[in-house]
Computed example of a mutant assay.
Amino acid sequence: MTPGHARPAVAGTLPPWALPCAPVAPFASARLAVAPGIQPLDPAEWFLIAQDYAGQMAERDRLVAEHPDWAYARTPQGEAAAAELLETVAAHVVERHGFRPDGPRALIRPDGVRVALDDLPPIATAGRLVQDDLLLMARPEGADEHVLVSGILCFPAHWTLSEKIGRPLLRIHLPVPEYPGDLARRVQRFFDGVQPGRPLWRANWHFAGGPEIVTPMREVDKTRMYAERLALTEDAWLRVERQSVLRLPRTRAVLFGVRTLVTPADGLTPAQWRDLDAVIAALPAEQGARKLGPALRARAAREAATAG
């Protein structure tokens, strides 16, 4: 079953899962602006917990409770990795983010919600502690690619977990036009090379017509999504995915975490508009058009000129 979208925002208000400004703007960094854009991540900064925490976690709790078959998926090959992931996440958020133990097998989140650590499968419980969607990848012996073996995906950006679970990296990324070929080889080398205790991160971004954070889409509908972006008005919403990659030491599985940040276009700073304009101008025309339609492209150029 596919869930309904998160409740829409009232016109002129900021929904509880969004932020008024963009703390991560990939187009403002030369290293982040073009895929894969990978760089080291301080282990202490694994999770970005901000003022949108309570709003996003309420939506995650709802999806896990009402749509468990949609929100998370498992394979037998991913069970040990998911258990290790939950153990690792729980220890980290207690140490770094002030989560409080409540008995031996429960934690109190910053929003005051109690999460029992044994009530649900480990992948689902881990996803109820942090804002990141959590996707576990493993490379079977003799296989050419990593495979998605377990995951919780509450805030998909135009894809569904059911179409990707159990699939290798190349198949997961279809139908992204730029992925097959050199980019696919670079991403696989990246997954092979990540080491325990040395996490990495990158960021992805696009603009959307509204602030909705639950945006599933089947692969066959991807071309419609690209067409809709061309029609976006100036009053669009920036959606950034802060993506972290970490290898678990015992199972050697690789975690791909996706922290979604939603910000109105009006929340971009003059410097961010200037950087956005420069990045779009440097991209191939077709790729730039998929990122920014004519109205937003014109606004970026205008805002950049004003910023000086």
Rank of each mutant, 00 (worst) to 15 (best):
Val262Gln: 03
Thr269Ser: 14
Ser244Trp: 07
Leu268Val: 04
Val258Glu: 10
Leu174Thr: 08
Val187Thr: 11
Asp182Gln: 11
Gln272Glu: 11
Leu296Ala: 01
Leu200Pro: 02
Ala58Cys: 02
Pro264Glu: 05
Ala305Val: 03
Leu169Thr: 10
Arg31Gln: 10
Arg171Gly: 09
Pro196Thr: 04
Pro104Ser: 10
His173Gly: 01
Ala82Thr: 00
Ser29Thr: 00
Leu63Met: 10
Gly78Leu: 07
Glu141Gln: 15
Ile172Arg: 08
Arg60Asp: 01
Glu234Thr: 14
Ile108Asp: 04
Val89Glu: 01
Glu84Phe: 06
Asp102Lys: 09
Gly78Arg: 04
Pro180Thr: 01
Gly257Asp: 13
Leu153Asp: 13
Gly37Thr: 01
Gln287Met: 11
Arg224Met: 11
Trp205Lys: 05
Ala285Glu: 15
Asp221Glu: 11
Trp237Cys: 11
Leu283Thr: 08
Gly209Glu: 06
Ala82Cys: 15
Phe47Ile: 04
Val149Cys: 03
Arg247Ile: 08
Arg229Trp: 13
Glu95Arg: 09
Ala271Pro: 04
Cys21Ser: 10
Ala25Cys: 12
Val279Ala: 07
Val258His: 03
Ser150Ala: 15
Glu145Arg: 06
Ala106Val: 09
Gln131Ala: 14
Trp237Leu: 13
Pro40Thr: 12
Trp46Phe: 12
Ala265Asp: 12
Ser244Gln: 15
Ala82Ser: 13
Leu261Val: 10
Arg96Lys: 10
Pro15Gly: 10
Arg302Trp: 11
Leu136Gly: 12
Phe27Met: 15
Asp266Phe: 05
Ala157Cys: 14
Glu163Trp: 07
Arg189Ala: 14
Val262Ser: 08
Trp159Pro: 02
Glu219Pro: 02
Ala208Ser: 13
Ala298Glu: 09
Ala22Gln: 04
Ile123Lys: 09
Met225Leu: 08
Glu219Asp: 14
Ala22Asp: 03
Asp69Trp: 05
Gly55Ile: 10
Asp182Asn: 02
Ala281Trp: 00
Trp273Val: 07
Leu136Ala: 11
Asp235Pro: 03
Glu286Trp: 05
Gln272Pro: 01
Pro284Ala: 06
Ala28Pro: 00
Leu255Phe: 06
Phe155Thr: 06
Arg62Thr: 01
Val214Trp: 05
Leu14Lys: 07
Glu286Gly: 08
Gly210Thr: 12
His206Asp: 03
Gln131Lys: 06
Arg297Cys: 00
Ala9Phe: 02
Arg252Val: 02
